[in-house]
């Protein structure tokens, strides 16, 4: 049996690359194992791709898992229509560069009913555009497994979520009826209509993500790096003031400063931090002395007590 690699699939191994330390290697191996297991067990997997740093790591691991083959499932971006413009440009480049199958979904209700984060508030906006949008996209595609980049260290209710997180046909998550998950043996048996959300990054922490991006040289949306950018201060958050749809409220002025983002989402709901970190080394250096968790910039987590758990029960990722 000839065993040459197909020429078209062969990328250039970075022979001079720093090898991963045993800690990151173990996390990488685990993630690849999960990717392969889901791809083999489910009929129609899809990968949720949000363009952020965790998604970028997830995509990198997917490419590793299936090399020398292509990533054997499409990427799904549930767009809200309110993402940072730089995210969309970056996304389009990545899809082309890595020859990926790609699906974008925007909940049609958003346009029809003019749902915006300004008019509907962050809670309702997120519920319609993200939670409902995600359900629509998964149903439309008939996907029985969806990869996500969630990590257990992000938020309290995630700490108890399984790597294979079972969902009812209505996409509901019941934290009390989770299947026990022992060793690295995953139970992928489901009935028609049911699905599984799979989380290959479950055991990664924020520091792991950044260090992996550094060692593996994974491209990121430039918004993660500090630059002189226009912003307004609103509700204690620094909102990027580039999109013409952002209307200034009385008393607000556009300011300029060196800022960057620790997480990326919808620009009106994602706060920047003042920073001088213009490259990865500096971002990591800042992170290692940071005393505030990364979700601090997210309005949606704090809407109400236990808010993430409530969203997840309803089908949010």
């Amino acid at each position: 049996m000839p065993s040459t690699l197909p020429e078209t699939e062969l990328h250039n191994p970075q022979t001079t690359k720093t090898p991963l330390d045993p800690h990151l290697k173990a996390l990488e191996n685990e993630a690849i194992h999960i990717f392969r297991e889901v791809a083999a067990e489910f009929e129609k997997p899809v990968m949720l791709y949000s363009v952020g740093k965790d998604s970028s790591v997830l995509l990198h691991l997917a490419r590793k898992a299936f090399y020398p083959g292509r990533v054997p499932f499409p990427l799904l971006h549930v767009n809200t229509g309110w993402k940072f413009a730089e995210m969309i440009a970056f996304r389009n480049d990545i899809v082309k560069k890595y020859d990926l199958d790609f699906i974008e979904h925007i909940n049609p209700r958003g346009k029809a009913e003019n749902v915006t984060p300004f008019t509907h508030g962050s809670a309702l906006f997120t519920d319609i555009m993200k939670t409902e949008g995600l359900r629509q996209a998964l149903d439309a595609g008939g996907f029985d497994a969806a990869f996500g980049g969630a990590r257990r260290d992000e938020e309290a209710s995630r700490a108890k979520e399984r790597i294979y997180s079972f969902r009812t046909p209505e996409h509901r998550w019941d934290p009390r009826a989770q299947r026990p998950e022992l060793w690295n043996i995953y139970n992928g048996m489901i009935r028609k209509g049911e699905s599984v959300r799979a989380f290959p990054l479950s055991n990664w922490t924020e520091v792991d993500i950044w260090r992996y991006i550094q060692v593996e040289d994974i491209p990121l949306v430039p918004l993660y790096y500090a630059k002189e950018r226009p912003y307004v201060e609103r509700d204690g958050m620094m909102i990027l003031a580039e999109d013409p749809r952002l209307e200034l409220l009385p008393g607000e002025t556009v300011q300029h400063g060196s800022i960057r983002f620790r997480t990326l989402g919808d620009f009106p709901l994602t706060g920047a931090i003042p920073s001088q970190a213009t490259n990865l080394e500096e971002v990591i250096a800042e992170l290692e002395i940071a005393t505030v968790s990364e979700r601090q910039g997210r309005a949606i987590d704090r809407d109400q007590s236990g808010s993430m758990e409530k969203k997840k029960r309803e089908g949010y990722f």
């Binding site: 000839p2 065993s3 197909p6 078209t8 699939e9 083999a40 020398p68 083959g69 292509r70």
Partner: peptide
């Protein structure tokens, strides 16, 4: 899983 990206591999 068995990876078969092309006939030769």
């Amino acid at each position: 899983r068995v990876s078969r990206p092309g006939e030769s591999f």
